[in-house]
């Protein structure tokens, strides 16, 4: 009896660190959210949530004629840069994943995977530096000024590409081998096996990759700041400079006071809501996928 109690104690003791870790990570999310709301509160209550979107421009320090807090242009900047990057990285990343899994010769597949892993480890500021020094002047030669939405999309696309590719490969590899064997034995062509058996079964994993990396693209600051030009405006074309919400926070946090500072926290709140919506959409797509399969 005593022994049993002792072993129960031991198992409880083993559970405790796990429970604490789980609790902590959940708590951090709640704390950050609470902190953001608290810091943004002056702007939310005095300026109002509506004006954050309806004000025509972002000019929070203007004394004459009143300050304006419009973030729509920057919100769109964020959505365009991140959306463009994922539209670029998703198909190419999928192609790389398929190549690594099915088309690469054996001697190439493993070193190639290491190169992709290395690419995923390059710090974002290095991407930004390269973008500012090489890519921006290159674009500027065709369509000045060069620092633009396009530069941001290309740099971000390159940054998330390796992770998309690695996650895509994992998703593809998780498709049961028996499905592949069955379809090969049924004389299906390679294109059909990939299109009709492999990709539908890998879809939940692929969607997760897309959602996670879109979230990362939305949150990325440094590289975007260095290549996008940071003009607060609705871009008329991909060659126009844009400013993203993240870049705006990084640019102004140093000198922002009072309402201006609170408004920056407000934009942080918007970014966070964007990611929440994204995760929610991803979750629902995945659930719908599983529903139609199972």
């Amino acid at each position: 009896m005593k022994q049993r109690q002792a072993s129960r104690w031991k198992s409880q003791l083993g559970k405790l660190p796990l429970q604490i870790s789980a609790l902590l990570s959940g708590l951090i999310v709640i704390l950050i959210l609470g902190f953001l709301i608290q810091q943004a509160w002056p702007a939310l209550s005095e300026v109002g949530v509506l004006r954050l979107f309806s004000d025509g421009t972002w000019n929070p320090t203007e004394q004459v004629g009143g300050a304006s807090f419009g973030m729509t242009a920057m919100l769109l900047g964020t959505v365009f840069v991140a959306g463009g990057a994922i539209l670029l990285a998703a198909p190419v990343g999928l192609a790389i994943g398929l190549f690594m899994r099915f088309y690469a010769p054996r001697w190439l597949a493993s070193p190639y995977r290491h190169v992709i892993q290395l690419l995923a480890g390059i710090p974002s500021v290095v991407f930004g530096l390269w973008g500012a020094v090489v890519l921006v002047p290159l674009i500027g030669r065709y369509q000045p000024p060069g620092a633009s939405l396009l530069a941001g999309i290309l740099i971000l696309g390159m940054m998330i590409l390796p992770t998309v590719a690695l996650l895509a490969e994992t998703a593809i590899a998780s498709v049961p081998a028996e499905y592949i064997r069955a379809s090969v034995a049924l004389g299906m062509t390679r294109t059909h096996i990939i299109g009709k058996v492999l990709l539908p079964n890998a879809m939940p994993g692929l969607m997760t990759a897309v959602v996670l990396q879109t979230g990362r693209a939305i949150g990325e600051t440094m590289a975007v700041l260095m290549v996008c030009g940071n003009v607060v405006q609705f871009p008329g074309s991909v060659f126009d400079p844009v400013r993203t919400l993240t870049a705006n926070i990084a640019l102004q946090m140093g000198f922002a006071l009072d309402l201006h500072r609170a408004a920056l926290f407000g934009s942080g709140l918007i970014l966070m809501s964007l990611v929440v919506v994204l995760v929610w959409i991803g979750h629902h797509i995945q659930a719908a996928q599983e529903g139609s399969h199972g």
Partner: peptide, 29 residues
């Protein structure tokens, strides 16, 4: 060759699709 020489495996291996889709898929190919 594989369309003329069919194979059944030890463990039943239908695709995670509908019953009719399972039969149709190789025919689509």
């Amino acid at each position: 060759l594989r369309r003329q020489v069919g194979m059944i495996f030890q463990k039943p291996n239908p695709f995670a699709l509908s019953i009719s889709r399972n039969i149709e898929l190789p025919l689509i190919s």
